[in-house]
């Protein structure tokens, strides 16, 4: 395993008398995007704020690339999309991106080129000479993501990158992350579990300031039992469960939500369970909307035993 890029040891943060983070310990290595989930007030923004150097932890230690947050060695190496942060309304987008590039040690011509590159990455070259006040919420968010991309940092912390965005902008942000994730490790805090499910192999769950669990996507492939999640169209739940249970290898069928079924099976007994299920659906003249391997992130995080 490669050396960790983030190390948090016994991290605590007290905010207005409340324990926002309670003895958080974890290590993260570079690689695929990492999701950070949890209910409102769970401490996600506080954790990202500490990692970015915006907040000082009450106790515990944090290091990024073996340096404390905010260290000069991290300039250009670690960047972030802070939640709800807005650019200065007095200057144009390019002026500010060039300024940030200069602060990262780029020369003026390099900073101009870099500003142009990051705006192109978020498909916003046409607004480079606009002021932030003229941008829509989605555009402003993409510009804020663009500033995080300046200098191709090795680690980018994104706090709610898709919050309040329309589906088209959500897709754009997802594409940006997917395109950049070969060279950059992203840590993404979000409430959109479907989005994180698509992007992240590894998920950290925070609840009431406590790190509850770390979900590793790849572990599922080595598990003794596997899951298939099926979205059906108006199928009779009782009948579906009964028929699915008759298939060889099926261990358990649950119906957590209307028209949603989770089939737990033994891959050693039935390697092609997906084909068996589709065949059963076809023979029963039911319709299905979606079949996916594994449980949804929501199920894994909040409804697993």
């Amino acid at each position: 395993m490669s050396s960790p890029i983030i190390q948090c040891k016994q991290l605590n943060h007290v905010y207005s008398g409340n324990l926002a983070l309670n003895n958080v310990n974890f290590e993260l290595a570079a690689g695929e995007p990492i999701g950070l989930v949890g209910p409102n007030g769970a401490g996600k923004t506080t954790l990202l704020g500490i990692l970015s150097g915006f907040l000082q932890p009450t106790s515990g230690t944090v290091s990024l690339f073996d340096h404390p947050p905010g260290a000069k060695q991290l300039i250009g190496k670690v960047s972030a999309l802070p939640q709800d942060a807005r650019l200065d309304p007095s200057f144009t987008i390019t002026e500010q991106l060039v300024f940030y590039g200069r602060l990262q040690g780029l020369t003026n011509p390099q900073a101009i080129l870099e500003a142009s590159r990051v705006l192109e990455a978020v498909s916003l070259t046409e607004i480079s000479h606009e002021k932030p006040g003229t941008l829509s919420h989605g555009m402003a968010k993409r510009v804020a993501i663009a500033q995080a991309l300046i200098g191709k940092p090795a680690l980018i912390l994104l706090d709610e990158p898709t919050a309040g965005l329309d589906p088209i902008n959500v897709r754009t942000v997802r594409t940006i992350i997917a395109e950049q994730s070969s060279a950059t490790t992203f840590i993404i805090s979000s409430h959109d579990l479907a989005e994180l499910d698509r992007l992240c192999q590894r998920i950290l769950l925070l609840e009431k300031g406590i790190l509850q669990s770390e979900i590793l996507g790849q572990n599922e492939q080595q598990a003794a039992t596997r899951f298939i999640t099926l979205q059906m169209e108006n199928a009779p739940a009782g009948e579906v469960i009964t028929k699915f249970k008759t298939i060889t290898g099926v261990l358990q069928v649950t119906n957590p939500q209307k028209n949603e079924f989770i089939v737990e099976y033994n891959p050693a007994l039935q390697a092609q369970m997906d084909l068996q299920l589709i065949q059963c659906i076809n023979m029963s003249h039911w319709q299905y909307r979606q079949l996916s391997h594994g449980k949804s992130l929501e199920e894994k995080l909040f409804f697993s035993d």
């Binding site: 970015s52 150097g53 915006f54 905010g70 000069k72 300039i75 250009g76 670690v78 960047s79 972030a80 802070p82 709800d84 942060a85 807005r86 650019l87 200065d88 500010q96 940030y100 602060l103 990262q104 804020a144 500033q147 995080a148």
Partner: peptide, 12 residues
């Protein structure tokens, strides 16, 4: 406004 955070990612 949060603009300081953008600057402090690159400065002290």
């Amino acid at each position: 406004r949060g603009t300081l955070r953008f600057i402090l990612l690159r400065s002290s």
